[in-house]
Design a protein around this nucleic acid. Sequence first.
DNA 1: ACAAAAGTGTTTGCGTTACACCCATGA
DNA 2: TCATGGGTGTAACGCAAACACTTTTGT
Lengths: 246, 246
Amino acid sequence: MIISMHKRIIFVITYELMMKKNYSQYPKHLLAVDCIIFGFDGNNLKILLIKRNFEPKKGEWSLMGGFIGDNETLDSAANRVLISLTGLENIYLEQLRVYSEVEREPTARIISVSYYALINIENNFEINEKYNAQWFDLNDFPELIFDHNLMVNHAVARLRYRASTQPIGFELLPVKFTMRELQSLYEAIFDETYDKRNFISKINSLDILIKTNEKDMRSSKKGSFLYRFDEKKYRNKIAKGYIFKI
Amino acid sequence: MIISMHKRIIFVITYELMMKKNYSQYPKHLLAVDCIIFGFDGNNLKILLIKRNFEPKKGEWSLMGGFIGDNETLDSAANRVLISLTGLENIYLEQLRVYSEVEREPTARIISVSYYALINIENNFEINEKYNAQWFDLNDFPELIFDHNLMVNHAVARLRYRASTQPIGFELLPVKFTMRELQSLYEAIFDETYDKRNFISKINSLDILIKTNEKDMRSSKKGSFLYRFDEKKYRNKIAKGYIFKI
DNA sequence: ACAAAAGTGTTTGCGTTACACCCATGA
DNA sequence: TCATGGGTGTAACGCAAACACTTTTGT
């Protein structure tokens, strides 16, 4: 009985090895993730960059990245990278695309998958100091290493597409926000200006916000009402065939 | 002089090794591409699948795929895979996304990047027989291995998005086509039906087609005029800020 | 009283949709 | 002559864009 068990285990192991051997002729690759981290300060879109303290390109600005492990998905690697920089969990993260130019990094062949994240900049979180991270205005940030500028361009394009078809803007705002803030956010994302009457009636027609009784008194003497995104209502509408479009 | 040259070379090699050593702590991964190949037969969107003649999942239907080499990009790997199956070069190919679930393939950890291709099914090309490939109707094709069904779903979504913002539909049609064919194509892509008068006036308002003097006599006794996509005009318009939208 | 931001409706124009009949031709 | 698909125009509607004044309140 024991021997038979043994045989069985050995057979399984051998079979697995045999099957895996099929792939041994193919090269393996270093795989990394790089994160484009967006924030919004009330006026402009911001991007969180790190100053590299290691070679190559030490001292230059880059996206935050990391290598993918043997037992993690790209999504979890991107999350891990993000948590190590900001400590924030459960933040909006979307895969963008893969960059595989053979010479994209000078010291080794590294294939990189870009992710973009949306975080509420007003959450008082601690940015891990060891990375020398800094927020930059998306309209004025330094040249980045390798193909990271290209990644940022792709991320902005995707953010615009996503923001026009899904209510992801709220990821960048505090839970409660004013109409003015929401409008400024969309103006920043799409690099346009809108008429506030048209903007508000558009938003109201979507019928996915809750107007609270609270007012934000910081911005004016009169104060402006605070709104919340009604995610439950939104999900209900989606389930009934509603299509978000802004 | 020769010695000095030697020293320089040795130094360079050592430096490279030293730099690469930094990455030796990180795992390497098998990386593949999988291609969703779309065609259009005049009525329905089609997808080209292969019947696997190797384990695992021998005999089941799958997407055409292949591993990425040390000195090729993902784009060129996808192209190589496509050429080996169809012999076709210079076809429309767009990267979709990466699939990295740890257990997505049972015999080894393989991370896969999906691409979708648009080919003109009427080009008389030879499908490489060794792959047991077959065209299926996109509304009625067999269950695929691993996460390939998910890949197809993503590809259809991307195709729809792309077709609504760029004139890629023409990749699926012969160089000369009738208005009816064009309408059928868009109806197949978006799974809707359109009023032909509205469709034609919409297309004409885009002003990117050339009406030839030729008629397609196969479809009716009267015959219907053939059109060509005016790529030059389109590029000109784009350069002047024109935004394609359908 | 005044400065500064909040809040609120109506009109116009354009693009999308709905809709039906005649034409040309081969069989 | 008839059956089949090709080709064409107009009216109604709805959403998006343009546009300006009143309210509130702290200073």
